[in-house]
Design a binder for these strands. Sequence first.
RNA 1: GGCGACGUGGCCGAGUGGUUAGGCACGGGUCUGCAAAACCCGGUACACCGGUUCGAUUCCGGUCGUCGCCUCCA
Length: 451
Amino acid sequence: MIQVHSTLHRALVEFQPRDRGKVGIYVCGPTVQSEPHVGHGRYAVAFDVIRRYLLWRGFGVTYVSNVTDIEDKIIAAAQEAGESVEVLAEKMSERFSKAFRALGVLPPDVEPKATEHIPEMIELIERLIDRGLAYERGGDVYFSVKTLEGYGKLSGRRPDELRSGHRIEVVDAKEDPLDFALWKATKPGEPWWDSPWGAGRPGWHIECSAMAEKYLGRGFDIHGGGMDLIFPHHENEIAQSEGASGEPFARYWLHNGLVNLGGEKMSKSDGRVVDLESIVESRGGKALRMLFVRAHYRSPIEFSDELLDEAAEALDRLERFRQRVTAGEPDSGALLRFQEVMDDDFGTPQAMSLLFDLVREGNRQLDEGGDASPIAGAVDSIIGVLGIDDASGPQQSGSLLSDEAIDEFVEERSRARSERRFHDADRIRDRLEEAGITLEDGPDGTRWLRR
RNA sequence: GGCGACGUGGCCGAGUGGUUAGGCACGGGUCUGCAAAACCCGGUACACCGGUUCGAUUCCGGUCGUCGCCUCCA
């Protein structure tokens, strides 16, 4: 039995897909207004692990993750950069994909763009108007929060509480300050589309409602995204979708914890961000993925160079073990334990613990001349589900020695050692170390490892 | 102010009403020409104060502290 923590239920609940053996997942992708930061990497990895695990558990998974390519911020960014919204969005979108690939994130099965689903959004808005849940004011269309029973159920807020808050933008056109825009009348210089309410563009939130329904249908299984999207974005998605259909929108809501920098949220708005692309290049997507997977996906996580070092270190330990032995048929007991911890809301920290237990046990068996291939097989399987192998290492800097060249040096050193010319041998080792190659002498000869 | 999460050993990070998480770092060993790696051994940590209990880090109450959301944000 798989249990997941659903924000909607505020508890661990048994995971039961809508359709037997199949899982539909919708994860809120980025608003492509600027380059990706480490926080984006975290949500991508979190849900990629969930996707891979469900696949491993034998489900047919349809993974949908959108690109929001029309929105206030993008328009502003494009105007500032002096380029079109389209060009900017396309460029950023490509950079997100590339960075995610370096993190070992599988491409979504469907990656719908908001601008390619305007008719679906218009149709959805019309349904909401027909049902008396939305109204038009001077070319804008707003969702009427007070007419919907149960608004606030995801975020645990009551409308009157929200209303008493003083931070809600007051727009005269709205009947209620809580109402939010489904459609916005166009302003000069902005992209626009024709609609029954005149030229305009969609509001934020509506694209997810329209595209999730289109690709996954009503009552699909898992809706995911960052914790910070719970309110208002996901709350409003529920309002729109359930308001229009009268049916539940998504069965389970999963939210990943945010990335902190110096104890505080990494946030675009106050410039506290670490650029994802530069980390992936200099430190490798693999190390960053490791850093993410070491913590539970719902916990907040601190980001720093030191923590990245630690993650890379742990990765090396894993790699060294895997280089010692050829993987065989996986140890079934180990996989069973892996399944146990992952079934419990995707317990990757426990999976890591298991992984390193296996490494120690495998190393011990090898030291004793035993057969560690089943353990190595289990290690490989687990690493595969965690997606670590699909992430890329850091870009190699400095001298690039070919494998053949390294082998030659190593052989030369072995000759020196056997002739007890240790000074010569050590000089070769030091030079290789400087070039980023570490040597390890063992009973079966010398192994080397790029650092 | 409202809602929510969390406070674990030097650091990261799980978990449990009484018995070993795990990683990194550190100390001692084994091995080795040396080093690295690997393996073995090593530190009675659970914010504070009460309560329940034979027994609480784990349950209840309170205090303090940190963080998130309430506005765009993964």
